[in-house]
Design a protein around this nucleic acid. Structure first.
Length: 271
DNA sequence: ATGCGGACCTGTTAGC
DNA sequence: TGCTAACAGGTCCGCA
């Protein structure tokens, strides 16, 4: 999936056809996503005006005059704008069709994505209520990260990937940010100094902003809302680069598993 | 409260 | 060429 830069790129790609438009209909072909698409969502959304398309963490928030629908891309979800009359392809699970004649079509082979109803105040929805700060907002500071990790024995990589701590730092960018910050991903979160947290926050923001600017990372088959691939892949320093020379010291990059996820790092630069 | 493993799925690729 | 196993961008849940 889609890490945060891909979700943000998607949001920017489809916002122009959704914001200010009216929903003609929601067409659901497969309800069995991460959670079942709620029965009756079609009726709820019909004829509603979309006031905004926002993002919170990796959720897209489709705001209408009667409430907000929540859309998550999971690991393999993607969205494209199509002609609503065009034949759906494999794994095209639903369309949001506007009265303007556009369709936002959701495709997700693994079905880890979701489409849910967030109600009138989506910040109160259980999936959103306890999320940590946005990584690119003022809420993520070194002081916050330092304070939130005291006493925690989890590794710093798992800590920054925990959405209750901070949202939007996925598996690729966690490895990348830790590399640029010179921090060993296995280090206990609770033992990192404030100075190192400053560096880490700075690198998280740099790597995410840079990836957004490049249109997201393309691994395998990711495409943004316009069907164009992202270009950040070319700039990855460690992710999926096991055995290649570290760009700083030429030591071979290593791979290990933390919390059942692959981590890539330089054993010499990251301490 | 924290930390860990398992769960949800399909598709691609590496290895035999 | 074909079969099998490992692995993949997320993140919630339940148990110890």
């Amino acid at each position: 999936m889609p890490e945060l830069p891909e979700v943000e790129t998607t949001r920017r790609g489809i916002a122009p056809v959704l914001e200010g438009a009216r929903i003609r209909e929601l067409v659901v072909r497969e309800r069995r996503l991460r959670w079942p698409v709620p029965r009756g969502l079609e009726k709820r959304l019909r004829q509603q005006e979309i006031t905004a398309l926002r993002r919170r963490a990796k959720y897209l928030l489709l705001e209408t005059t009667v409430g907000t629908a929540l859309l998550h891309l999971g690991m393999s979800g993607s969205i494209r704008i199509v002609d609503p009359k065009s034949a759906p392809e494999k794994h095209d699970h639903f369309d949001i069709v506007t009265t303007q004649g556009d369709a936002v079509r959701f495709n997700d082979p693994r079905r880890f994505g979701s489409l849910l109803w967030g109600g009138a105040d989506p910040t109160k929805h259980p999936l959103l209520a306890k999320l940590g700060p946005e990584p690119l907002d003022a809420g993520l500071t070194a002081e916050y990260l330092h304070a939130s990790s005291r006493g925690r024995r989890v590794s710093i990589k798992q800590h920054i990937m925990n959405s209750h701590c901070v949202v939007g730092v996925g598996n690729i960018y966690a490895s990348e940010a830790l590399f640029h910050a010179g921090i060993n991903p296995t280090r206990a979160a609770g033992r990192l100094s404030l100075a190192r947290m400053h560096r880490l926050v700075n690198e998280i923001q740099k790597v995410l902003n840079s990836a957004i600017k490049q249109g997201g990372t393309t691994l395998r088959d990711y495409r943004n809302g316009n069907g164009k691939p992202g270009y950040f892949h070319q700039q990855l320093a460690v992710y999926e680069l096991e055995g290649t020379a570290c760009k700083i010291c030429t030591t071979p990059i290593r791979r290990r598993v933390q919390g059942q996820r692959a981590t890539y790092y330089c054993p010499d630069c990251q301490t």
